[in-house]
Amino acid sequence: MVRLAAFGGVYSNHLALAAVLEDIERRGADRVWCLGDLGGFGPHPDRAAEILRGAGISMLRGNYDDSIGNDRADCACGYTDPRDNGFAQISYDYTVARTSSDHKAWMRGLPERHRIEAEGRRLLLCHGSPRRVNEFLWESACSDAFLEWLCDRHEADVILCTHTGIPWHRALPSGRHVVNVGAIGRPANDGRTGVWYAGLELDGGLEVEFRPVAYDHEALALEMEAERLPAEFAETIRTGWWTTCLENLPVRERRRGRH
């Protein structure tokens, strides 16, 4: 049996990251992967980078890491709504100015995808989708036919992705799987202050468990306020409801949220 723990979207939430890594340590995992987007949204971006690198966790280069690592002009999240882009730019400018050059160099060198062979299955780890780093794979917006095509096209039996911030798992008619492991940097727009990551067990079959992790979210919100990050961001941390960057959220996921 192979046990894999995977998460994405740390968004500088160093307190949630530390809590998630503790939970993984307690439950045990053969491999641990962060699927990218270490910065943005939260405070003090170097703290999360130090925790992750200090723990020796493998990481993919998400769109955010690519932008920060290369000092690009924006996060390349792919929004078109000027309000979302305005908030995204505030986060981005804050993050890029406070990420050390050593961490930037490390981000530049991260892989965009990673393949694992385990228990006879081909796992493909990516950030947005196997074909595009900033593609949003929302559960309600992807037909089975499309996900099967992604698996065919990219020669994978299990695709792991993140980028959207809401975890889901689809067992496809062919027996293959797509798992969006969620993000640990902000709540999953579910009215809970905790965050989610994914535990996978491969043993003939594939078991996927989304694990809730509580952390000191109030301490994070206070840090964000002290850093003068937008009040809308701290509100999300305190309430579990997204307030910004909602543009792409499809109706089914949106209905479960508040804004």
């Binding site: 917006a141 992807c142 037909s143 036919a145 499309f146 099967e148 095509w149 992604l150 065919d152």
Partner: peptide
Amino acid sequence: QGLALGVKE
């Protein structure tokens, strides 16, 4: 036909 081609939406 679209589903056979892997259409998303």
